[in-house]
Simulated assay, not measured.
Amino acid sequence: MVVDVSKINTNLKDLILKLKEKGVELGSGISVEDEETYKKKKKLVAFDLDGTLISMETLDELAKIWGVEGKVKEITKMAMEGKIGFKEALTKRVSFLKGLPVEELEKLREKIRLTPGAQDLIKELKKAGFITAIITGGFDYFAKYVGDKLGVDYVYANKLVVKKGKLTGKFTGNIVSPKAKLEALMEIAKKEGISLSECVAVGDGANDIFILKSSGLGIGYKPKKLVKRKVNALIDSEDLRTIMAFIGNGHVRRDVIKKLERKRLE
Results as ranks from 00 to 15, higher is better:
residue 3 V to K: 12
residue 3 V to A: 13
residue 10 T to P: 00
residue 10 T to H: 07
residue 11 N to Q: 11
residue 12 L to K: 14
residue 15 L to C: 13
residue 16 I to H: 10
residue 21 E to P: 05
residue 22 K to M: 06
residue 25 E to I: 00
residue 32 V to I: 15
residue 32 V to Y: 07
residue 32 V to L: 12
residue 33 E to I: 02
residue 34 D to Q: 10
residue 37 T to N: 13
residue 38 Y to D: 04
residue 40 K to L: 00
residue 43 K to P: 01
residue 44 L to Y: 01
residue 50 D to V: 09
residue 52 T to D: 11
residue 53 L to Q: 02
residue 58 T to Q: 04
residue 58 T to S: 12
residue 59 L to Q: 00
residue 63 A to V: 10
residue 65 I to N: 05
residue 69 E to V: 00
residue 72 V to T: 05
residue 73 K to F: 06
residue 77 K to D: 09
residue 78 M to R: 15
residue 81 E to W: 00
residue 82 G to V: 14
residue 86 F to R: 02
residue 86 F to I: 10
residue 87 K to F: 05
residue 91 T to N: 06
residue 91 T to W: 03
residue 91 T to L: 05
residue 94 V to E: 02
residue 95 S to C: 00
residue 98 K to T: 04
residue 102 V to E: 07
residue 108 L to A: 09
residue 109 R to M: 13
residue 113 R to E: 12
residue 114 L to R: 08
residue 117 G to P: 12
residue 118 A to E: 03
residue 118 A to I: 10
residue 122 I to G: 04
residue 124 E to Y: 00
residue 127 K to C: 03
residue 127 K to M: 03
residue 131 I to N: 00
residue 139 F to Y: 12
residue 139 F to S: 07
residue 141 Y to P: 05
residue 142 F to C: 11
residue 145 Y to E: 11
residue 146 V to A: 10
residue 150 L to H: 13
residue 151 G to N: 07
residue 152 V to Y: 01
residue 152 V to E: 07
residue 154 Y to F: 14
residue 155 V to Y: 00
residue 157 A to C: 13
residue 158 N to P: 07
residue 162 V to N: 09
residue 163 K to M: 08
residue 163 K to C: 03
residue 164 K to C: 07
residue 164 K to L: 13
residue 165 G to C: 12
residue 166 K to F: 05
residue 167 L to W: 06
residue 167 L to I: 06
residue 167 L to N: 04
residue 167 L to F: 03
residue 171 F to Q: 02
residue 173 G to Q: 05
residue 173 G to T: 04
residue 174 N to K: 05
residue 174 N to R: 04
residue 177 S to Q: 06
residue 179 K to M: 13
residue 182 L to T: 11
residue 182 L to Q: 11
residue 182 L to N: 10
residue 187 E to R: 15
residue 188 I to N: 03
residue 192 E to L: 01
residue 193 G to L: 10
residue 193 G to C: 06
residue 193 G to R: 12
residue 194 I to V: 08
residue 195 S to F: 08
residue 196 L to N: 03
residue 197 S to D: 15
residue 199 C to V: 15
residue 203 G to H: 01
residue 205 G to V: 08
residue 205 G to S: 15
residue 207 N to D: 05
residue 212 L to M: 10
residue 215 S to A: 15
residue 216 G to R: 09
residue 218 G to S: 09
residue 220 G to P: 14
residue 222 K to F: 01
residue 223 P to W: 00
residue 224 K to C: 05
residue 225 K to S: 12
residue 228 K to A: 10
residue 231 V to S: 09
residue 234 L to V: 06
residue 235 I to G: 04
residue 237 S to I: 07
residue 240 L to S: 11
residue 241 R to M: 01
residue 244 M to C: 02
residue 246 F to N: 06
residue 258 K to L: 09
residue 259 K to Q: 12
residue 261 E to Q: 13
residue 266 E to F: 04
